[in-house]
Design a protein around this nucleic acid. Structure first.
Length: 270
DNA sequence: CTCTTAACCTGGACGC
DNA sequence: TGCGTCCAGGTTAAGA
């Protein structure tokens, strides 16, 4: 479930339970995630106080004095704060014990997620090449227009490139392109300045709205909930290939772009 | 550089 | 009920 809004919702849900707490234990049940969990996680985290829980792109950072735990949820990762007595699932890979008596549990069936270490004062190389946050002023139509000149890749692929802008995944890119009236197949370099202005605005509006909705659904991280679906009723194109366009009624087209399912309206999006 | 493709891994949905 | 196939909200490594 993790694009930017889901990660941000997770961050907001976790922060009140983590910030100011001291880590009492680190239990690695299955260290072979996308990358092996480095020794520093087990060596450095215990006894440290959690100073802040931050987000950069789709990564979460749990700050302590010697450094930060860097987490990515991949496709299927979930983080919850639970009572230690909560029954263990098959894919509960990490428990971080807190002095509140609760545990932060990382669950990830597909193991595309990761838990890495970023020493204080340094920037992990995974974060080094990332583009701007979409909800900041750095990201706007002019930025996209300038960067896209001579780019031949589809505008959808361009926008999902985390070195262009972070946090936009397969769902929200489809929705943003629909709202901006741009066909996802169009070459990034062939989209004009004005249309990029609309696209940047659409990305911001949709992400902000999804965060707002997510915040109301996933607020309680003490309970094993997890099932999102909150945005589902509001999707115009994602996952709706073959169904009727909610605007013009025509049948939505579908194709694969960069190995990702893509749906759009051939009439409303040019 | 830019772009495309395959790969990582598990589980759920679907067709037979 | 069982089995094969395809698909999934992400990202990187490798190759063209």
């Amino acid at each position: 479930m993790p694009e930017l809004p889901e990660v941000e919702t997770t961050r907001r849900g976790l922060a009140p339970h983590l910030e100011g707490r001291r880590i009492t234990s680190v239990l690695l049940r299955r260290p072979d995630l996308r990358w092996p969990i480095p020794r520093a996680i087990k060596r450095q985290l215990p006894q440290q106080q959690i100073l802040a829980v931050r987000r950069r792109a789709k990564y979460l950072l749990i700050d302590t004095e010697p450094g930060s735990a860097l987490l990515h949820l991949g496709m299927s990762g979930v983080l919850r704060v639970l009572a230690p007595s909560t029954p263990l699932g098959a894919h509960d890979h990490v428990d971080i014990g807190l002095d509140s008596g609760q545990v932060l549990r990382f669950t990830d069936p597909r193991r595309f997620g990761c838990l890495l270490w970023q020493a204080a004062g340094s920037t992990h190389e995974l974060l080094a090449g990332l583009g701007p946050e979409p909800l900041t002023a750095d990201f706007d139509g002019d930025y996209l227009f300038d960067l896209s000149r001579k780019r031949k890749a589809p505008v959808k692929t361009f926008l999902m490139d985390q070195s262009v802008v972070v946090g936009v995944g397969n769902i929200y890119v489809a929705e943003a392109l629909f709202r901006a009236g741009i066909a996802p197949t169009r070459a990034a370099g062939s989209v004009g300045r004005e249309r990029y202005e609309r696209l940047a605005t659409a990305v911001k509006d949709i992400l902000a709205h999804a965060i707002h909705r997510g915040g109301t659904t996933l607020r309680d991280f003490l309970n094993a909930d997890g099932a999102p679906g909150y945005f589902e009723q509001e999707l115009f194109v994602y996952g709706r290939e073959g169904e009727a366009c909610k605007t013009c009624g025509r049948r939505l087209r579908g194709d694969r772009l960069g190995n990702r399912a893509t749906a759009w309206c051939g009439h409303c999006q040019r």
